[in-house]
């Protein structure tokens, strides 16, 4: 038996924090690629500490629903899952290239394939672009549009900025959007000054966050000037200093993220058969025709 366990942060305060995790788990469960698909959280239940005992499988693929490598993926998750002998060197990562490490869970004896986070997988670039399609309602969006990826800066985690840059570079290489910029919440170039960094009249703004919450629903909309008071909401697009800003909210809520979770597990050796194709098909943007 093989199981997929998606692990995420969760929240004691925000009821929506777990929603994307559940949704992506459901998408993958529906493909039937895994005997079991479970979810575990740092702040909700089942806790990371106990999630492995909720699956009967002896072979488990653990995919962290986090945007970058860092404290959670390198220390907290392996420790709480009790992955014997874990050493971050097993990922051999430069901060962006964590793939997987095979370990044994001390409390359950299960073989655990501990995967890198979804946020640094190359397929995440596709999800960011898909997010732009979703928020504009245009599957061909690109020409005449700027694209901004926004995340935390290096203040909390230097790899956070690496992931932002990585995807911004990859989107730029697509040569699909007129301009592509990486912006940050707590360092330059700051998202607060978004109009200064773009010449395009339209800019899609996609936060590299897993769930919508305080940062994506309150901080960014107010910092960018989409609204004076987040409680009153904002328009999509909202015009700021002459720029139409198409604010997408957390990329992690995009259904295609399930594809990245699957890619991670497949890269680690999971037999996912035709599930990748099926997920790409079921999560595509409706074109209306």
């Amino acid at each position: 038996m093989q199981a997929l366990v998606i692990v995420a942060h969760g929240s004691h305060l925000n009821p929506d924090s777990s929603t994307p995790t559940y949704r992506h788990a459901d998408t993958i469960r529906a493909t039937g690629a895994f005997d079991e698909v479970r979810t575990g959280f740092w702040k909700e239940e089942p806790h990371l500490r106990e999630v492995l005992r909720t699956t009967e499988a002896d072979e488990v693929y653990v995919v962290p629903l986090f945007v970058s490598e860092g404290y959670f993926t390198e220390q907290v998750i392996p420790r709480e899952l009790r992955l014997s002998g874990w050493d971050v060197e097993q990922w051999g990562s430069d901060g962006l290239s964590a793939d997987q490490a095979t370990l044994t869970a001390a409390d359950t004896g299960q073989t655990v394939h501990y995967c890198g986070p979804v946020g640094t997988h190359e397929a995440m670039t596709d999800v960011l672009v898909r997010r732009a399609e979703t928020v504009t309602g245009d599957p061909d969006v690109g020409e005449g549009f700027g694209f901004a990826v926004v995340g935390h800066g290096t203040e909390r985690n230097e790899n956070s900025a690496k992931a932002i840059e990585y995807h911004a570079d990859r989107i730029r290489e697509l040569d699909r959007f007129d301009e592509v910029r990486a912006l940050y919440m707590d360092e330059d170039p700051e998202v607060d000054d978004l109009p200064e960094f773009f010449e395009s009249d339209d800019v899609v703004l996609v936060p590299l966050f897993i769930a919508d919450g305080f940062h994506t629903q309150e901080d960014i909309p107010e910092d960018v000037g989409l609204t004076d008071d987040y409680r009153e909401g904002y328009d999509v697009p909202a015009t700021v200093d002459g720029v139409r800003v198409w604010y997408a909210g957390a990329v992690g809520t995009e259904p295609l993220l399930a594809d990245v979770v699957l890619e991670r597990a497949a890269d680690a050796g999971a037999d996912v058969e035709n599930a990748l194709e099926s997920v790409r098909e079921t999560t595509r943007v409706a074109t209306g025709d």
């Binding site: 239940e45 089942p46 806790h47 106990e50 999630v51 005992r53 909720t54």
Partner: peptide
Amino acid sequence: VETVYPATVANWHR
């Protein structure tokens, strides 16, 4: 039951 009260059956069994 395990969705309403996660991991409670697992720990009770142990």
